[in-house]
């Protein structure tokens, strides 16, 4: 269809498809080349390495094998051990729970900022932007101080019978969850707030005039309008949360190894790159799969992420 009509007037210029291609190559070319060479090719090579074997000194060598994937599923040297399937499950649960908690916190916060009088709105928004742009590493290790048994927060939790005196708050799964939600909440609030600002409130008023109660108005007339922001926020939280390695590394212990930690271990400590690549390859597939499932169930509303 496009081939028949070769010339086209665009922005006041007439260009042949050859001209189009030439200008694309001159403008988009270098960027595309860079991203393909330094990102796409490396990702593909990870997939290839995952079918190779580890040499004596940690080098990557032939033969091609499925051994890495067998080991991942749990068939190792010492009989069946579901270590890695459990890690995948744990990471999925962590990603999903973090996302849900961030949505539960992000909704009131985004509506709060939206409802602020104009004079204070920018300040309320800037107050979310500051943690958003503050280094995640700093915000994470700070919880080690906050949760230390000698500091007030831990004492308060003991006082409220939310934790027992002898049991340390960190390292623990609890600490990981606290750190995750604290770090990712701003990532959900920002895109969600952008949607809240665009809400057409006359629809909500119409629903109220027609006799809907508060919850119904929210559920049927308000929430559907913020779906684009919610979808963007969920993607911005779930994916990095699932692959996180810093937060579990700093706030968790040996019992809370996540996908990110497993990948880091294979690449930097065990130096088993083929097995590490297999984990990475599967993590990548998992992300793509959950994105695809999510896009399908969300009715493909997440078109443009930024």
């Amino acid at each position: 269809m496009a081939n028949k009509q070769k010339d086209e007037v665009q922005f006041g210029e007439q260009l042949t498809s050859r001209g189009q291609f030439l200008r694309s190559a001159l403008t988009s070319g270098p960027g595309i080349f860079w991203v393909v060479f330094f990102l796409l090719v490396p990702l593909v090579s990870i997939a290839v390495i995952s079918f190779l074997s580890r040499g004596m000194y940690g080098e990557i060598q032939r033969p091609f094998t499925l051994e890495n994937f067998k080991r991942f599923i749990g068939f190792g040297l010492f009989g069946y051990d579901p270590l890695y399937p459990l890690i995948v499950l744990r990471s999925l649960v962590l990603g999903a729970a973090t996302t849900i908690l961030c949505v539960l916190g992000g909704l009131p916060l985004a509506f709060f900022i939206g409802a602020m009088p104009v004079r204070f709105k920018n300040m309320a928004l800037t107050l979310v932007l500051i943690p958003f742009w503050t280094n995640l590493l700093i915000r994470t290790y700070a919880w080690q101080i906050l949760l230390a048994p000698e500091n007030p927060l831990a004492k308060l939790l003991v006082l409220l019978h939310l934790s027992s005196p002898g049991e340390p708050l960190y390292p623990s799964a609890f600490a990981i969850y606290i750190g995750m939600v604290c770090d990712y909440l701003p990532f959900l609030v920002m895109p969600l707030y952008a949607s809240v600002e665009k809400i057409d409130w006359s629809i909500a008023e119409a629903a109220m005039d027609l006799g809907a109660d508060g919850w119904r108005v929210f559920w049927h007339a308000v929430l559907p309008q913020v779906v684009p922001g919610l979808v963007a926020g969920i993607i911005l939280v779930f994916i990095p949360a699932m692959g996180q390695f810093v937060i579990p590394d700093l706030l968790g212990g040996a019992k809370t190894v996540m996908l990110g930690n497993a990948i880091q271990q294979q690449f930097l400590q065990s130096r088993d790159w083929p097995f590490g690549s297999a984990i990475t390859f599967l993590a990548m597939t998992l992300v793509m799969l959950s994105l695809w499932l999510y896009a399908r169930s969300a009715g493909e509303k997440g078109g443009d992420i930024l």
């Binding site: 990870i46 692959g243 990548m284 992300v287």
Partner: peptide, 10 residues
């Protein structure tokens, strides 16, 4: 859309 650790090891 990809976790940064995947990019990093790649």
């Amino acid at each position: 859309v990809i976790p940064d650790i995947v990019m990093a090891v790649a």
